[in-house]
């Protein structure tokens, strides 16, 4: 097997006095979509933030594209081609939609074709182009946060709960967009609570529990094993029908 694009080995993270990650290990293969699942508080967000260098890893190793990126400064990690959509979205409320995207397009003016492609998926962004982003609705902010990550091609997208607060039609658009991205230029690591969404989109899956990865494998196998889901996610038998 080729070397994975991203791999975590024994990653431990402390936040203040709390020990949150206890040796996280998993791989993200190039050119697919890996779903990171787990109960509330399992450590998914912390894992993404540690990858981005926003929390310090106290131990362990994070490799991206054959390079050790553990505890590199966040901007340097981003410049290797990693984009991050945080759970809180962190859009810049004082800036307009346009200005948010201008900043995200680090290498220069935005590519109009790509912009049109994004507008096709997230029509609201076009409509509110000049509006301060703070005035967008929750779902629109989510669209903007995702758009910011994909406004330029990036090798790896780390996306924390993209479907939160979105209407079904927009979720369908997002599924389309993520499919196109993973089949084309990018690799995706997506944290998700919505298992229906996760099952449709994921190629492989890593499931976290209490600061560790408790299971990693293909999505098809995981989706078929309801006992395992029950055990790891506490999903009821009917929620994933």
């Amino acid at each position: 097997m080729a070397e994975p694009l991203l791999s975590l080995r024994g990653v431990q993270t402390h936040i203040g006095h709390y020990h949150i990650l206890h040796g996280v290990e998993f791989d993200v293969a190039e050119g697919g979509l890996t779903m990171l699942l787990g109960r509330n508080g399992a450590g998914k967000t912390t894992t993404l933030r540690t990858i981005m260098g926003m929390w310090r890893a106290a131990a362990g190793e994070i490799r991206f594209d054959g390079r050790d990126i553990t505890n590199m400064p966040t901007p340097d990690i981003a410049r290797l081609g990693i984009a991050y959509v945080p759970e809180s979205m962190a859009i810049f409320a004082d800036l307009t939609v346009q200005e948010n995207l201008v900043l995200a397009a680090r290498s220069g003016p935005m590519d109009q074709k790509r912009l049109d492609w994004i507008f096709g998926r997230f029509e609201a962004l076009k409509r509110f182009w000049m509006l301060p982003a703070g005035l967008l609705s929750g779902g629109q902010k989510q669209m903007l946060a995702v758009a910011r990550a994909i406004i330029e091609p990036r090798r790896l997208l780390l996306i924390d709960e993209p479907t939160k607060g979105l209407a079904p039609a927009i979720i369908a658009n997002m599924i389309d967009a993520f499919r196109e991205l993973k089949d084309g230029e990018s690799t995706l690591l997506v944290v998700e609570q919505n298992f229906a969404f996760a099952r449709q989109l994921g190629d492989s899956v890593a499931v976290m529990d209490d600061g560790r990865v408790a299971h990693q494998g293909g999505m098809a196998a995981f989706a078929a094993d309801s006992a395992l889901q029950q055990h790891l996610l506490g999903l009821g038998m009917d929620t994933h029908q």
Partner: peptide, 20 residues
């Protein structure tokens, strides 16, 4: 823009690849 964004949320400006 960077300065204004940084005032609001410096961490996210860094995550976009800028050295704040």
């Amino acid at each position: 823009l960077l300065i204004r964004a940084g005032v609001e949320n410096g961490e996210m400006v860094e995550a976009l690849g800028y050295r704040i």
